[in-house]
Design a protein around this nucleic acid. Sequence first.
DNA 1: TTGTATGCGTTATCAG
DNA 2: CTGATAACGCATACAA
Lengths: 333, 333
Amino acid sequence: MNQKIFVSAKEVADRAGVSRSAVSRTFTPGASVSEETRRRVMEAAEALGYHVNHLARGLMRNESGLVCLIVSEMDTPYRASLIRAISRQLQNVSKIAMLINTDRSDKSVDDALRLAISYRADASIILSGMPDKSISDLCVKSGQRLVLINRDEEREGALMINLHDREAARRAFIAFQRAGCRRLAFANSDVGTPSLMAREEGFVSAAQAAGFEVAVERFGSTRYQSGVVLAQRLLTREVRPDAIFCANDLLACGVMDTARHQFRLEIPNDLCVVGFDDIEQASWSSYELTTFAQPVDRIAEEAVSWLAKPLYDAGLSCKLSAELNWRGSVRGG
Amino acid sequence: MNQKIFVSAKEVADRAGVSRSAVSRTFTPGASVSEETRRRVMEAAEALGYHVNHLARGLMRNESGLVCLIVSEMDTPYRASLIRAISRQLQNVSKIAMLINTDRSDKSVDDALRLAISYRADASIILSGMPDKSISDLCVKSGQRLVLINRDEEREGALMINLHDREAARRAFIAFQRAGCRRLAFANSDVGTPSLMAREEGFVSAAQAAGFEVAVERFGSTRYQSGVVLAQRLLTREVRPDAIFCANDLLACGVMDTARHQFRLEIPNDLCVVGFDDIEQASWSSYELTTFAQPVDRIAEEAVSWLAKPLYDAGLSCKLSAELNWRGSVRGG
DNA sequence: TTGTATGCGTTATCAG
DNA sequence: CTGATAACGCATACAA
C-alpha cells in the first residue's frame, strides 16, 4: 500500500495561526469558537483540503459512525431495496453502512459480526442468517446495537423486526377462496428460514381450518429457477392446483412463467398466484402479481430510529404488517 | 449513544501476564512471538472476547481497510450485482465496503468522496455520477485510490474501467441485420451518461454506414417505466420499428412488455429487441432477451486487484468487452 | 523474543 | 473564548 498523506489538524492550526484545539472546536458542532477564529480556520482548512479524521474521532468519542449490514444474496431485488432503504436512512443520521456478504453458513455470519466488532461499529443489522449466541451476546455486552430483520429467533438485547407472516398467509388463503380456487398449493424453498416457514404454516393451517388440503412443495433457494422447478412439480401432480401461494415473489415469477410457457395455462383463469415481497418485477405487466408488500422503508426507519435513540429497552420486538397488493394474478380482487 | 466497552489489548496483556506489545505482535501476521507467549495471549483474548480495534490500527498503519462504494439507484439489478461482486472481492483481500448512496446531483458524489476522505478509505469506487475535479484530485493527491466504472470522463491518477460500448452497439446492428430487420430504433433514457450515449451513437453510426436510418427516442431514467413510455412513442410512429436496441435491460423489459400487451406484437416475429447488461430477468422465460453481458465479476476483479497492487501507474485505463448473449428476442441467432 | 517508549489525529478537561 | 495536556488503542523502533 502506497503512502497516504492526509492533512491533519495541526497543519491547519499552523497555517491559521491558532491552536489545534481551535481547529477541533471549529469542526465540533456546538463548541464555542469566536467568529473570527472559525473563519480563519475554515479558510486554512479549505486551502489545505483538510477533513476531520473519523478514525481518530471515533477512537476518542467511542463512536465510529459505522453500521454493519450483514446480508447474503444481496443482488436479489428485495434485499437490494432493503439495503438501499437502510443505507439512505443511515446517511440521514450521519452514519454510514459497511456491507458484509455472507454465504449460507452461519459461521460466515459470526465472522461478519467479529469484523463489526473490530471496526467498532455502532451497530450491526442482520438481514440473513443467524449468528451464534456467544458472539451476538458479545456484541450486546460490548454496547454494540444489534438489529435482526425477519430472523425469528430471539436474541437478548437486540431489536427484532418481523412481519406478521402467518396473518398474511391467512389473507392469501382468503383471497384464493374468494377467487373460487379449490386446489391449493404452496411453493416454498427448502432453506427453512423461520419467516418462510411461518408463511407456509399459516397458509396450510388457514386452509385446513376451512376444510382444504394444501399441496406443499419445497425446493432449492428462494430464486426464480427454484420457482420453475416447483411449478413443474406442482403442475404435474394428479390433482393440478388452481392456486399457488409462493413464499416470495422470485419464486412466483418462476412459477408464473413456467405455468404459462411450459404448461400453457392462463393466469388467473387457469391458475391464481400470490407472492410475497412486492419486488419491482411484481408490477411489471408480464406478471401483475398479487403480492404482500414488505414495508422496506418502514423497516429501515424502525431500525435506524432505534439506533439513534440514546437509551433503549433491551429485547425490543417490532411486528409489522405486510399489505396485500391486488393485481391481475388472482381472479376477482 | 450509550457507552461502548470493548476490551483492549492492555486487558489481554494483564490477564496473560505479558506486555501490551506481545499482544499486538500476536495479532500482527509475521511478527516474532514465541509459541508459548502466543498461546497465552490467544487464550486470554478468547476468554475476554478481544478483537483488534481496526480504527486504532488504521490510524497507526495509515490504512483503514475501508473502501468506499459510491452509487445511486443501487436497488437496480445491474447495480446490485456489481455491488455484490465488488464487496465479495474486497472481502477476499481483507478489505470492507462502505456503501454511500447518491442521487442525481454531482454534489452528492462530492459529498460522498469527502466522507471517504474523512474515513481515510483506502480507495473509492464510483459507479454513478462524476465528482468535481478538485475533489477527485484531492483524493488522488492524498494517496487514496480512485476507480471509475463506466464513467467515460478522464481523471488523473484514477483507474478507469469501461466497456467497448460502441463496438457492442455495432454488433447489435449486425444482429438485427441478420434477422432481416429494416426499421431500426434506439430506446434511450435522457440521463445522458457517456456509456449510454456511446451505445446510441455506435448503433446509429453503424446503421447509417449501412444505409439505415434509426429512430431514436430518449426519455426518463433507465428503468422499466421509461421503457414503457419509450415503446409507446416508438411503436406509434408512422413507420413502426421492427427492431429496437435498448440502452439497458430494464428499458428492454418495459419495451417488450408494452409491445406485447399493449400493441399485441409478437417477439421476435413482429419486433426484435436487444438489451444491455444481462440482468437476471433477461433470462426469464417471459423475456428471453438477447443482450450484452456486463462482465461484473471481471470488473470487480480488475478494480480490486488494482487496489491490492503496491505500486500503480497513474491514469490507467481498462477496456472490457461485453459478450452478446443470444436468446429468443431476436430472430435467427 | 521481549518490554519500554513514542507517535498516529482526535477530542475532552482544565486552567487561564 | 483560548491554549496546553492527557487520554483513546494500537504498532513499531529501539534497547535489552
